[in-house]
Amino acid sequence: MAITAAMVKELREKTGAGMMDCKKALEEAGGDLNRAVDILREKGLAKAAKKSDRIAAEGLVSIAISNDNKVAAITEINSETDFVAKNDEFKSFVQDVTQIVLNSQAQDVEQLLEEKYLDTDSTVKEVLNSKIATIGENMNIRRFEKFEINDGQVAGYVHGGGKIGVLVKLETSSESQEVISLGKDIAMQVAAMNPKYISQKDVDQEYIAHEKEILMQQALNEGKPADIVEKMVMGRLNKQLKEVCLLDQSFVKNPDITVGQLVKEYENKLGVSINISDVVRFEVGEGIEKKEENFAEEVAKQLKN
């Protein structure tokens, strides 16, 4: 039986599921609308769709690194509440998805959702929707990134039980475990200090121009003489750049040295060059507008119903 757009539309209105999911369900049901509804319910898709407009701003960040430290993955998966984020079933799902990313060639979340879920016949999307249906909260795979390196190693660090995750790519000829120790310390630095750039040569010129304009206006508003403002602003800008550039930051475990000096120490010790070529930092919920809930009001509302 041919599946028409009108049939897909009707099923979508009944269940709230996605158009492609509705089309597949109708095809599987041979055009039987009621059976298609059941199929969507069995897969958790109908229930999941009804929860999809809820804000999921809690969750976990997870990392996975290959045994040879050449490939690494980081993912952020969100839930509605921190309570669910601490649930063992949710934690296992986040770890599984990160492992799938590590072994996958998926370029974006849409492709990842169509990947097979470990050694099952289900896709990541189907398992996600099943979790939404059983756990009872909206959840979504927000983002992921994958690092691969031939000449060097990748290290990582997870902070706060999964609230922040960092991967650091180190280009070097050394296969020493000490490179991984350095990478973990740098990842910890990135988690704590959240630098915008690796070094000053990476700084966007638009960023410099923008900050310089703000600093100049600040100095003028402070009543500083116009003839010394330029010199003063350059001093302040250089200080600010040291705060936002990883290599110029004071090392959190030893503030007497910078991260750049730490890297130099390891280079001298191992007799190789070490270049921090890439860094990624995920923090749970960053950039997501959270809905403020008054818990007492919510409980009172429930008791009245």
Rank of each mutant, 00 (worst) to 15 (best):
M1N: 11
M7Q: 15
K9W: 14
E10I: 14
A17I: 06
A17S: 11
M19D: 14
D21N: 14
E28R: 15
A29C: 01
G30M: 09
R35M: 06
L40W: 11
R41S: 15
E42A: 15
L45M: 15
S52Q: 14
R54M: 06
A56C: 02
A57C: 01
A57S: 04
E58Y: 02
A64G: 09
A64I: 05
N69E: 12
K70A: 07
I74E: 05
I74Y: 04
N78T: 05
D82T: 09
F83N: 15
F83S: 14
N87T: 06
N87E: 11
K91F: 12
S92V: 05
S92E: 13
V94F: 03
V94D: 00
Q105L: 12
A106L: 08
A106N: 05
V109F: 06
L112D: 00
L113F: 02
K116A: 05
D119Y: 03
D119P: 08
T120N: 04
V124T: 04
K125P: 00
V127G: 05
S130N: 09
K131Q: 02
K131A: 00
T134R: 07
T134S: 14
I135C: 12
G136R: 10
E137Q: 11
N138C: 01
M139N: 01
M139I: 00
R143N: 12
K146W: 02
F147T: 02
F147G: 03
I149D: 03
N150F: 05
G152N: 03
G156C: 00
V158R: 01
G161W: 03
V166K: 06
E171F: 10
E171P: 04
E175H: 06
S176F: 12
Q177R: 13
Q177N: 13
E178T: 13
K184D: 09
D185F: 10
D185Q: 13
I186D: 01
Q189C: 06
A191P: 07
P195H: 15
K196F: 15
Y197Q: 07
I198T: 05
I198A: 03
S199P: 02
D202A: 07
D204Q: 15
E206L: 08
K212G: 10
L215S: 07
L220I: 11
G223R: 04
K224G: 08
D227Y: 14
M234D: 12
L237Q: 12
N238R: 07
Q240Y: 11
V244G: 04
L246A: 12
L247R: 01
F251Y: 13
F251S: 11
K253F: 15
K253D: 11
D256I: 08
T258S: 11
Q261M: 03
Q261D: 06
L262A: 03
L262F: 04
V263W: 03
K264T: 09
E265W: 12
N268W: 11
V272P: 07
S273M: 12
S273R: 13
D278S: 10
V279G: 05
V280F: 01
G285H: 00
E286C: 01
E289H: 03
E292C: 04
E293M: 03
E297H: 04
V299I: 10
L303A: 12
L303N: 09
